[in-house]
Design a protein around this nucleic acid. Structure first.
Lengths: 238, 238
DNA sequence: CGTGAATTTGATTTAGCTCAAGCGGGGTGG
DNA sequence: CCACCCCGCTTGAGCTAAATCAAATTCACG
C-alpha cells in the first residue's frame, strides 16, 4: 500500500503496510483540515494538490505551502496540538488516513520511520525559511522565479512531468499572489515579463519552463540554496 | 541543572539531569552554529539572546527568529542533517551542550520528553507561519507592532521584565529591519510614529510598552492569534 | 575627547498597489 | 446550439508606501 524512497528495511516497510488506513476521495475546493482542530489521524496525500493557508480578518490570505502527492499533511499528529492553519484542496484528491496511535507506535518501534517523519518536519521548516527570506528580501520577480523553480522542481522529482516537458499546476494567479504576498495584477505583469523573455510560459494551468537557467538566474538561486528539497517523500504503490 | 515547565515526572526530570552536559560561555557577536554544519550536540541557551539568520549574496540578511533563555537552538540534532541557517549571539551567553545521542536516548525512554521536543519544533513552525503572514500581508507598522508584541510577550513569560515594566532587548534597528524585511530608515520612522502616539518607547535597548492594547490594535492582533506562543520552554535551575 | 556605530532627518525615486475597465473562454441553462 | 455570464487574466492610469541616497546628530566607549 505504501512504500518509501528513504532507505527502509523490509521489516519497516512491512510495518507501514500493516497500519490500518482508509483512503478517502475529496473534491477540489474542499477543506481538508480546519484551523484549531486536533486531527486524530495522519493524512497522506495520495493524489491531488493541497495547500496550507490562513485568512486574515481583512480578507487577505497567506498561503504557507503546497502539498504534493506523497506529502504528509501534518506531522502535527505526533503532537496532540491544535493546528494553526487550514489545509485546502486545489484539485480532487485521494487522501490516505492512518490512525495516529498506530503510526506513532510504528515510529516508536522503527527509528528509521520516526526519522523520516522528523525529516519531513525539517523540510517544512526549511521551506518556510526560504519563503520568509523571499518575502523579506527579494523583489517580486525574484520571488516569483524562485517559486516557479521550487514547485516545478518538486513536481519533477515526483516524475509528474508531461511528455512535452510541461507541468500541470492548477494554480490561478490569485493563489500565486497570495503565496507571494503580491497583487494579482502584479503577478500577471511579472509573468508576462517572463514570457516576453522566453523564460517560462504559464497559462491554462500548464507551466512550461523554457529557460531554466535563465529563470534560476533571475531567482538568484545561484549563490543561494536550491529550492528547499522536501525530504524524500513517502511514495505510494497504491 | 535543568528543570521543566512541562509536566514531567520525577523520573523524567532525573533523567534529564543525568545527561552529560557542559556549559560554555560565548561572547556577543559570536556565531554559535554555522550553516551547513551537523551539530553533534543539542544547544540549550541558558542566558543571553541569539538569533537565526541567513545572508544573501547581495549582502542582505533575513532573520528567522530569536532564541531566548530556555530555548533549544536546534531540535535539528534529532535529525542528523545539515542546518540551513546560522545562529548568532546578540549578547554574551551561556550555552549548555548536551550530547545528542544521550538526549536522543532519553527521548526514546521518556515519551514526554520527546513530546516536549516536538512541541518546540511545532512552536518554531507556528512562529514562522506568523512571520510569513506578516511579511506577506501586513504593512510595515503592523509588522513592527506585531513583532514588538511577540518579543515582549515572550520575555514577559520568562519573567524578564524590569521593575519599571520595561524590557531589555539588545536589538539595534538594523536587526529589526532585517527581521521585518524593511529598511533601517523606515524602521526608525515607524518607531517614531509609535513613540509619538505613546504606544511604545524603544531606545537604548530598553523597550517600554506604554499602550499594549493600542499596540495590539495596530498589530491587528485582535482577530488573529496572539504572538506565537513558544512551547513552554525548558527552564533552568542552573 | 574622539571615533565609529546607531539613529534621525530630509529629499527624491520607485516598485508595487489601487482602481477601473476590457477581454476571453468555458460552462450552464434555455 | 446559442447566449450569457462568471471567472481568471490583462491593460492602463494614477497613487503611495517604502526604498534610496545623503547628511546631520546623537550615543557608546576607549
Amino acid at each position: 500500500m505504501l512504500s518509501k524512497f528513504v532507505a527502509l528495511s523490509l521489516d519497516e516497510e512491512q510495518a507501514i503496510r500493516l497500519i490500518p488506513c482508509t483512503t478517502k476521495r475529496f473534491a477540489g475546493g474542499d477543506t481538508l483540515v480546519r484551523e484549531g482542530k486536533r486531527p486524530a489521524a495522519a493524512f497522506l496525500l495520495v493524489s491531488g494538490i493541497a495547500y496550507r493557508y490562513r485568512h486574515l480578518a481583512n480578507g487577505k490570505r497567506q498561503i504557507f505551502g503546497y502539498l504534493l502527492p506523497g506529502d504528509l499533511c501534518d506531522v502535527q499528529f505526533m503532537i496532540n496540538d491544535e493546528i494553526d492553519h487550514d489545509i485546502g484542496l486545489l484539485t480532487d484528491a485521494e487522501v490516505a488516513m492512518f490512525s495516529a496511535p498506530e503510526i506513532m507506535h510504528c515510529g516508536r518501534t522503527f527509528p528509521n520511520i520516526r526519522q523520516a517523519f522528523l525529516k519531513m518536519m525539517r523540510a517544512e521548516s526549511a521551506s518556510l525559511h526560504e519563503w520568509l527570506l523571499n518575502a523579506g528580501q527579494r523583489s517580486a520577480p525574484q520571488r516569483l522565479a524562485h517559486f516557479i523553480c521550487e514547485i516545478s522542481g518538486r513536481l519533477h522529482e515526483l516524475g509528474q512531468v508531461n511528455q512535452d516537458g510541461t507541468y500541470f499546476i492548477p494554480l490561478t494567479q490569485i493563489e500565486i499572489a497570495d503565496t507571494m504576498g503580491m497583487t494579482v495584477v502584479h503577478v500577471s505583469r511579472c509573468m508576462q515579463q517572463f514570457r516576453r523573455n522566453d523564460l517560462v510560459q504559464w497559462s491554462k494551468r500548464q507551466l512550461n519552463v523554457m529557460d531554466a537557467d535563465g529563470l534560476r538566474k533571475v531567482a538568484d538561486l545561484d549563490g543561494g540554496r536550491i529550492a528547499p528539497a522536501l525530504a524524500e517523500p513517502l511514495a505510494l504503490a497504491v
